[in-house]
Design a protein around this nucleic acid. Sequence first.
DNA 1: CATGAATGAGAGTTCATTCAT
DNA 2: TATGAATGAACTCTCATTCAT
Lengths: 201, 201, 201, 201
Amino acid sequence: MRTANPELQEQRRQQILQAAGVCFAEKGFHQTSMAEIAKAAGLSMGLLYRYFANKDSLVLTFAEVSRAQSVTMFESLATSDRPRQELAAIVDTLLGEVLDPALLRLQMEVMAEACRNAPLMAALRREDQLGRQALLESVEALRKRDLIKPQVPAPALVELLNALFEGLTVRLAMQPDLDRERLRKATLTSVLSLLGASPAL
Amino acid sequence: MRTANPELQEQRRQQILQAAGVCFAEKGFHQTSMAEIAKAAGLSMGLLYRYFANKDSLVLTFAEVSRAQSVTMFESLATSDRPRQELAAIVDTLLGEVLDPALLRLQMEVMAEACRNAPLMAALRREDQLGRQALLESVEALRKRDLIKPQVPAPALVELLNALFEGLTVRLAMQPDLDRERLRKATLTSVLSLLGASPAL
Amino acid sequence: MRTANPELQEQRRQQILQAAGVCFAEKGFHQTSMAEIAKAAGLSMGLLYRYFANKDSLVLTFAEVSRAQSVTMFESLATSDRPRQELAAIVDTLLGEVLDPALLRLQMEVMAEACRNAPLMAALRREDQLGRQALLESVEALRKRDLIKPQVPAPALVELLNALFEGLTVRLAMQPDLDRERLRKATLTSVLSLLGASPAL
Amino acid sequence: MRTANPELQEQRRQQILQAAGVCFAEKGFHQTSMAEIAKAAGLSMGLLYRYFANKDSLVLTFAEVSRAQSVTMFESLATSDRPRQELAAIVDTLLGEVLDPALLRLQMEVMAEACRNAPLMAALRREDQLGRQALLESVEALRKRDLIKPQVPAPALVELLNALFEGLTVRLAMQPDLDRERLRKATLTSVLSLLGASPAL
DNA sequence: CATGAATGAGAGTTCATTCAT
DNA sequence: TATGAATGAACTCTCATTCAT
């Protein structure tokens, strides 16, 4: 009798999540069948269900992973000695060609699904909360360093910035042909304006 | 002899669209069956298909109608002699309690669906284009009246404002418990800041 | 109050039957909806049901009419003083370009349907019986005039000739690109051979 | 580990095809629902669709199988040292009680369907072509052996013979009460006459 | 005589999920 | 651990038929 093999198990999970991500981004959550995911992952359906209890739990796990990327973006902003470049980098990441349109579609898909899938929503918010917290701390830190003078309270500002980034994501998902270069500049300018950035920033 | 009755037909269409809107917002597009829509509208499925060729054309028509509302919002801004109030009203409309959470969810649903439904996407963009055009004209008009001095070119500004509004919609859909009152103030302040509003505005 | 108008009624019936024929030949019996027939006939569905109790009765009536054409073909053969030309004309009618492929398909459709629609089958056989009877009488008459010496009994010969014609119809329906000119000659030769035609014929 | 089982798969296919054949013959193609076929085969609908992509592909496969039987009939005729018996056997097979009326109805059904189902038609013709080719070669071979002297060119003769057989099939499908015994004799005589059979045959 | 609105059962097809091997 | 066979309810969409006007 074989013993449990954690490494293999983790690899299988990644295999499945990756395949699911590709499928969901391409066809959407509800248009992707479990059979397709299994096929894309190169596994049998039985095995798939060994690792994920059902389709919902797959999206859920997947959502956590997918969101985790955007969470880390704001964390280094607070203590950076070159916050302007940091901000520019964030905008770049959001608007640059780096960002796969398929990934954008996937985010929309996950958000829409979250609106009627309570556990998914909870997971999404947990991740979102972390991101907001990081951004909030960064804003406060920059303010204490007298680098910015926002005209609105920090929590609301964070909400607005998040909304702006979210909105840009949505619009890029829906208009893949937007001039990202021009938008990038304008976005940075606007973000600095919202922050009330001092010349020193 | 019984003749065709356009009034009845229009009433039926509205009946169906309204029922579909409620269902889509509550359960999502793919989770709502045509039978459910028919039942919600108080009609038979056969009749439903008399008025809408298929499920897709239902969302499509619905999307056009749904979007048309937000299009008109920006139109009166250009020539208004009280643009500040006009702007405040727009922000109010977007963030006030007026906005049904169900409607927000419906918008997300439509957007997500549009990402993989080309005709729907086209319809959405058509409406979106009208809204952008109206907003662009308003911005240019205000600038000519020396009421605003935006730091970024008008087209990019329009895109950013749209993104901000879109993003707020998304975030409100996902966080129905946000403090809308506080957000409203912050949003108005920020929008004025982005526009580079002069004190005269 | 209006009085019944037999002429109009008959015209309506013809209108419907003709439209049904076109539709059935194009799409097949089971693929043609009553709505399509009504539309093709330029009538409302209500009126259609006034003239034909249901879809089956439509095919039935239609089948009778459709078959009646081929019935008359053999009748003049018996007493003709130029039986060879008469035969050639029959073969021509069957194989010449005159015969619409759509009509051939329609015949196949009706036959297939008849296999599981008892009343239709009965109607078809009634017509068929008339045709067979006419051909039988013709064969006997020709034999009495010593113009033919068939090697098989007249009833069997009639059955075989009918089968040959039917089979040619079927094959033409399935292979519209057959060389009809060549087939026509060969068919006439073969029919004469089966009849045991004397040189005097 | 459970491995794919080709035997089981083949058995399932046969199970389904047989059930479909029975149903189609009894009720016709369009009157038979997939659920009925599944039930007749003792399988679930899901499994049925595992083996046949859709209803059309079922008839198609079925048509190929069904036709293949008649293809082999003519092949042994060419080299046989007892061609007369061979011919008699063919006629027997076509007209004898061996031939299930249900199978005849099924053939009609398939032919009628083929008239408006292009892929099915193509499949049918492919099989038909093989049969014609075999018959053509047999006729040529017999002629070279001076056993027959047909009055019409071999290709046309083949077409006529095929039409005759097809026609007999049709007529038997429509008149199950025909005297097959008498028809059998007459058919053989007639076929020999059409072939121009020498006494030596 | 004629219309068009209305019905609802049933069609083909898909898919999340289970389980014997 | 891993497989593929199996299920059946649910989905979208169609259509013969009826009837108030």
